[in-house]
């Protein structure tokens, strides 16, 4: 390209950068919420669970704020090509992030329902599921920043691990319930927790799909 062609639209591209930063900030908050929700379950920390429930609004505001920013940029800048895909990705990704936070809040609500009663078994697979799901979110956000398609694609395999663990948890808790019906209430709650984590991992995989779209313009199904 010859020298007379100047770089233009600096303000708009700075705005796009800010938008991506906002998404990362929201993602980091969601990541912490997931971590804290499972921590409150494992440690029976009711105060922490209450705080998670009460602070959900923050994530909702962030979602609205980022969506508004996206719509304003679409209206005022009429973005094309990669710029358009970045905004499309952010617009979809905030919904996934908000849903992930909702699932984390639901886990906190389970903790509040169990109300500190002793756990029917030491939790092993649930923290493992949570750890993988949280890592998936971190990896999806990293892939978003680095535009790393390979990292985004690996999420599919991690999601399989989470699904597998959930199946394991489900079967194990079923055995508990059959052996002792008094465990049914808590075991059902724990199955819900597993289900929430499984959904969180699915949303992280969706984020990976959007990263791939942003970089390549192609829609790929990683949830297969």
């Amino acid at each position: 390209m010859s020298d007379e062609h100047q770089v233009t639209r600096r303000g708009f591209h700075a705005d796009l950068g800010a938008l991506q930063q906002d998404l990362l900030r929201m993602g980091t908050l969601v990541e912490r919420t997931i971590h804290d929700a499972v921590k409150s379950l494992c440690e029976g920390d009711l105060a922490l669970a209450e705080r998670i429930r009460d602070e959900d609004d923050v994530v909702d505001w962030m979602e609205l704020d980022i969506q508004n920013h996206c719509l304003t940029l679409l209206a005022l800048q009429q973005p094309m090509a990669k710029d358009l895909r970045v905004i499309g990705t952010v617009l979809k990704a905030v919904t996934d992030l908000e849903r992930m936070a909702d699932h984390a809040v639901d886990i906190a609500k389970v903790v509040l329902r169990i109300q500190g009663e002793p756990l029917i078994k030491p939790l092993i697979d649930i923290p493992r599921m949570a750890e993988i799901s949280r890592r998936m979110l971190r990896q999806a956000l990293d892939a978003f920043v680095k535009e790393d398609v390979t990292a985004a694609e690996t999420l599919s395999r991690m999601d399989d691990e989470v699904d597998h663990l959930f199946g394991q948890i489900f079967r194990e808790l079923l055995v508990f319930m059959m052996e002792d019906p008094r465990t049914i209430k808590q075991a059902t709650h724990l199955i819900f927790v597993g289900q929430h984590l499984e959904r969180i991992a699915d949303h992280a995989t969706n984020l990976g799909e959007w990263v791939i779209y942003q970089v390549t313009g192609e829609r790929k199904d990683l949830n297969d």
């Binding site: 390209m1 062609h5 770089v7 973005p79 090509a81 358009l84 895909r85």
Partner: peptide, 16 residues
């Protein structure tokens, strides 16, 4: 939405 050549990308996104 998906230009193949980086020069097209740069032009339509207003990078030059």
């Amino acid at each position: 939405t998906r230009p193949e050549d980086p020069r097209t990308e740069d032009y339509i996104t207003g990078r030059f």
